[in-house]
Amino acid sequence: MKKILIVDDEEKVRRLVEVTLSIGKFDILHASSGEEALKIARESKPDIMLLDIMMPGKLDGFDVCRLLKKDPDIANIYIIMLTAKGQKVDKEKGLALGADDYFVKPFSPMELIDKIDRVLA
């Protein structure tokens, strides 16, 4: 079963994604901060990571993305940025750091699941 890690400090958003993806056969993992996201990523090696940027704590989404891509063990995780930072520079920065996709909040759950289906197909 494919593993998807949801990283967001807003519990409501994590829940939304979880529910959205509940129609597929995924193993859903949660992380509410950058540090937690890295930890779980290393432990569970998810296939996809849905990554928020603006999170409390030392590591934001950009940091997580960079560190992830540096670690050969987990560099192959498909990263979809899921963030409220909708400006062009933010998107460029995220993609430059190695993110595979970029979703701006508010997002459509249907579009998200379509995307994940395509990635995992």
């Binding site: 807003e10 409501k12 939304l16 994604v17 129609i23 409220a84 930072k85 400006q87 508010p106 997002f107």
Partner: peptide, 22 residues
């Protein structure tokens, strides 16, 4: 403001879509 506005909007849009489609 963008961030603060987008976060609740995400919830509103996401859940309402779920309510409508699921």
């Amino acid at each position: 403001a963008s961030h603060e506005l987008r976060t609740p909007l995400t919830t509103l849009l996401g859940y309402s879509e779920l309510l409508l489609t699921r």
